[in-house]
Write a protein that binds this DNA or RNA. Sequence first.
DNA 1: GCATTTACCTGACTTAAGTCAGGTAAAATT
DNA 2: AATTTTACCTGACTTAAGTCAGGTAAATGC
Lengths: 291, 291
Amino acid sequence: MQTDPVSRFRRFARAVTAEVGALDSSFLGRGRPLGAARVLNAIGQGRADVAEIRAYLGLDSGLMSRLLRGLEEEGLVVTRPDPGDARRRIVSLTDAGQTEFAAYERLSDERAEALLSRHADQDALLAAMDRVASALLREKIEMREVDPRAPEAVHCLQAYYGELARRFPQGFEVSLSRDPEAGAMVRPRGSFIVAFSDGLPIGCVGLKGTGADYSEIKRLWVSPAARGLGLAHQLMARIEAIARELFITVLRLDTNSALPEAVALYRRAGLREIDRFNDDPYPDHFFEKRL
Amino acid sequence: MQTDPVSRFRRFARAVTAEVGALDSSFLGRGRPLGAARVLNAIGQGRADVAEIRAYLGLDSGLMSRLLRGLEEEGLVVTRPDPGDARRRIVSLTDAGQTEFAAYERLSDERAEALLSRHADQDALLAAMDRVASALLREKIEMREVDPRAPEAVHCLQAYYGELARRFPQGFEVSLSRDPEAGAMVRPRGSFIVAFSDGLPIGCVGLKGTGADYSEIKRLWVSPAARGLGLAHQLMARIEAIARELFITVLRLDTNSALPEAVALYRRAGLREIDRFNDDPYPDHFFEKRL
DNA sequence: GCATTTACCTGACTTAAGTCAGGTAAAATT
DNA sequence: AATTTTACCTGACTTAAGTCAGGTAAATGC
């Protein structure tokens, strides 16, 4: 019986090999050997340093040199010496190279679309794919400070409000269109952080300068695809570090017992439970931390 | 922002390519070119017909011939003419070939284990991987009649009872050790079906001959990894076909409103709701279908 | 300032993979 | 029975990928 973890993983590998291999094969759709196509795409993704591309693709220096020359002869890339170190070379795409790279991207998109369109339960499938990818990439999660009105932030906040609406027994009213608190979550009064995993927004947290003698942590959310990876802790640590940068000395936050994992997280993170400090109807738990 | 389906799928492909590629590379761990190793493994998996292996691996007939001869020279496989068609050839592993194939399997297992061990949230990760694999392989689901006391069946039944225990407000008492009903779910009185996806049991259903003038459908279960693929319908259709084979004319079943998707399924499947026909404390919905 | 290291290039080579045009014997078709 | 098709084999060839031993020029270390 193939129910042990190793068998399950190997079954997964067998299942995705065919589909993912088909995606890779878009690198062969334009009459260019795989090696040259991979180099072109590495450059298209923004890699400019020859040594970096070589390390990324695991190529021999001689082979890399020949592949690059081939692309140069095709008129797709140009190289010039690194001004800071004339031994090194900087590569970039010409206009023709941009066009060719875009064609590869389109091919990949088309194959991905064709593969996906064969599946009826796309939402569930993509959710599971997000989960697998987030777990596999968990060491490469990147956090960026963004404006809470930026699309990445709005994406997270919509998911957050949607979840509140589902989980609060009394529901939750979304008033996202013009968030009155957004202005308080930008520097220098506050901040807003979005966590990305290979480009996909998977979590957020806000720091809201209230003008009073404390600041508030708001809208801590982690995508279902990324739960169990310790991301909420990382977000809390990061926003706390920013609070210190902004000379904030007292952090407060409120939450609801319908979100028991949030309550547990705040307790574990060393926040102290305090009395109600606002008259918001939703929260029933209140925390504080002095920095 | 990379939140559209195509970007999410491509992110998934990027994330798994590295890991799955590492698994594939176990085919290179024994000093044999990839092509030869793939042929050896195809034979080890039970493929015996040369033409079938050629089609499966997408090889040219000349190349296949040479790879096979190489393996023969290594003493790993033997070929003999197909007795039914002397043009065709049957390949099988020698003892040395068996040993070599087992070594490849061990390599793959070890790599899989190493990859998995790097992940803390294994249960959630494997659940998501099962879901992805089941969706990708949904056209290759295989249903087999098995004894309800066989390990594959017990695996499904444990999952089934576990889910009942979680979902019934009053809980559910598992008395699996010696299932008194198992004997009524084997031919000629009844039947038990397990659905497999590339070896993993992902669903089951039982047909219980009661001795009375009706038979019962019992223990319809679909793994969370395979929901949304229409498997429950397939299982119902299959068990109904078997009931006809056994000259059963009336099918009954009971279920509980804590399982709304089951109630909805039975209604959609054309079963008629009837009055309570037993004094089991758990069910509160009763269905019948005349064949 | 001089030796060493580094980044890239070049030429000669090997290996793996695959293609293509025949060829043989058995099976299927007419 | 003759023809065609099929399954496999063989030899000659091409291409892609990669390896290895030098070589040049710039940067670095002592």
